[in-house]
């Protein structure tokens, strides 16, 4: 046989002081062993832990909780700042490496310049065989603005005079 639970749902309200037993309920409670035993349980349970509650210092708990959380926030901030510094350092390193690489390319360009310079020296060595008038003609050509000189379109062979054609032939033969 299942125990009587007639007053079970009402017990919590009455124990909390938010309701009173109706006369019929009180009469049932006085005669029902099941409900009487449950009511005693609820009353004892209501008092359980009262001392723990009394000993709890909410202000102290609150201070500790807030201090712990503030400490965690500080650590998180420090970690974030550390992360940002790390990122910044990594970015700076990447820029340095990239710059060095470009300098390396520049070094390549420098090497090219050397090659070109070497080429120029070779050409200059050839220039040694030229007479003074020919050298002056070349120098005059170098003095021209880029658009008219080396950077401009090369003159057609048909436009050159005999001396210039011979000079070109000599430079091709080495």
């Amino acid at each position: 046989m299942s125990p009587c639970e007639l007053l079970s749902d009402r017990m919590v309200q009455v124990a909390a002081g938010t309701a009173d037993w109706a006369p019929a309920e009180a009469a049932h409670l006085a005669t029902c062993a099941d409900c009487g035993a449950e009511w005693r349980l609820v009353q004892v349970a209501r008092r359980l832990g009262a001392e723990a509650a009394r000993r709890t210092n909410a202000a102290s708990v609150s201070r500790q909780v807030l201090a712990t959380l503030a400490g965690e926030r500080r650590r998180r901030r420090r970690f974030r700042v550390g992360g940002l510094v790390g990122l910044a350092a990594a970015a700076a390193l990447a820029i340095m490496v990239s710059t060095a690489d470009r300098r390396g390319d520049g070094g390549g360009a420098g090497s090219m310049a050397v090659v070109e310079a070497a080429g120029l020296q070779l050409r200059l060595a050839e220039l040694e065989s030229l007479n003074e008038a020919e050298l002056e003609a070349i120098l005059a050509g170098l003095d021209l603005p880029l658009s008219e000189g080396a950077g401009g379109a090369p003159p057609a062979l048909g436009d050159l005079d005999d001396t210039q054609l011979e000079r070109v032939l000599r430079s091709l033969e080495g």
């Binding site: 349970a45 359980l48 832990g49 009262a50 001392e51 723990a52 509650a53 009394r54 000993r55 709890t56 210092n57 909410a58 202000a59 102290s60 708990v61 609150s62 909780v65 807030l66």
Partner: peptide
């Protein structure tokens, strides 16, 4: 602070009844 003030004691009662070590309730 106000939330702790409101609920700390009730929580302590529950913890004490539910098996929390009395020395560890706080």
């Amino acid at each position: 602070t106000e939330l702790v003030t409101r609920h700390a004691a009730v929580l302590a009662r529950f913890l004490a009844g539910a098996g929390g070590d009395p020395g560890d309730i706080d």
